[in-house]
Write a protein that binds this DNA or RNA. Structure first.
Lengths: 200, 200
DNA sequence: CGAGCGCTTGATTGAGTTCAAAAATCGTGG
DNA sequence: CCACGATTTTTGAACTCAATCAAGCGCTCG
């Protein structure tokens, strides 16, 4: 057990506010560890999602496949991110999108109950799920604005800012899918940038 | 008082599950009515948002203004919709976007406390705010996928489906802004559609 | 009745796609 | 550890959708 996922979870909470052992002991019971190999799915589109995940190591993504068979990536979830089809989880409805591992990953699974946190005494965070959802909305808004207003090059630069590590380790075609452009276009954008700013 | 906004709010809840008078009595205290004239703002971008709104009549929108001075509409909120900058509300941070009235509107304002619903006994909905946020995410996801995958014409057709009433009553330039295209382009899209399907 | 705003229409331009093929990289089995 | 096939990335050329620039039309409202 070289990388204990619960240690990563604890770190996540501590980064935000001190968390007494007792409270964390309760919290951790809501999670179950799992390792995912590359390309292994958490759930497919159309299935009812039974779990969301906290990513302790690696990277997951959520994505849809459109009528033309093209994949569109909604979210990347590298270390310390949450990922889930909340709608499917809470309403037991078929998931709109699939979630799979982009790399070998270690995650902590939680289920629908987590959002309500009935058992938890205070955990200071009946707000926890609210914060998670609010952050998710915030991130999606940023992305909407970029898609509405900025050309591919700017969106790519923003991506590098937002996910510096991912920009390195993910294959170009996944990044292109996230940005909403073709791999060919992204390749060209990179080419241009390499010439504009030789020191990068 | 021909249109009591609280009646609209009550209707909203009843549509989802029966709501005893006693519980609604508690709930309604979290809201304060307000009338907005066309173009009147709830808050500007950069201000700390103090309220979110339930729209009883009319239509609000949230939008950002980009570096080139162009407006981008994030959300329309016609009757029975909620609209707010949750991030700003809950974190007392400067709002990322502005909210104003597209038409003369009647709304019920709520503040940050609403999300926690401390005072409320059960209201069957400690889930209420969770549901609201989850629905918001769901809607934004749909829109992201459309922006990533579909050309302007398809996005417009989807808009008509999703907001049949708005497609009628909103000026074209607002719809264009929402769709992420220029008014000129939307005009042409409409022209094409009128010819393709003469019976519409 | 004129000024201004919103919508349309046209001509041109440009960012990004598509199709095609070559070059580079990766993974796997021998 | 190397070699080979498969997948990724790059590069090129033609094309397309939507943006931009520029008039012109019709309406409302002041």
């Amino acid at each position: 057990m070289k990388t204990d996922p619960y240690v990563a979870l604890r770190a996540y909470f501590e980064q935000r506010a001190p968390l007494p052992d007792a409270e964390f002991a309760v919290l951790r019971q809501l999670f179950r560890p799992r390792t995912l190999r590359r390309h292994e799915v958490l759930h497919a589109a159309g299935e009812v999602a039974r779990h969301g995940a906290f990513v302790a190591r690696g990277c997951l993504r959520s994505f849809v496949v459109d009528a033309q068979g093209k994949e569109h990536i909604l979210q990347f979830a590298p270390e310390q991110w949450w990922i889930a089809d909340q709608h499917s989880l809470t309403h037991h409805a078929p998931a709109l999108f699939a979630i799979d591992a982009v790399e070998e990953s270690e995650v902590l699974l939680y289920d629908a109950l987590f959002y309500h946190q009935k058992g938890l005494p205070t955990v200071r965070d009946s707000e926890l799920s609210l914060t998670m959802l609010t952050n998710r909305i915030y991130a999606m808004q940023q992305r909407l604005v970029l898609l509405l207003s900025a050309p591919a090059k700017v969106r790519y630069l923003d991506f590098i800012q937002t996910y510096p590590t991912l920009a390195q380790r993910l294959p170009l075609r996944l990044i292109a899918s996230y940005l909403g452009i073709t791999p060919e276009s992204l390749s060209r954008v990179r080419h241009e940038l390499a010439h504009e700013r030789p020191g990068a």
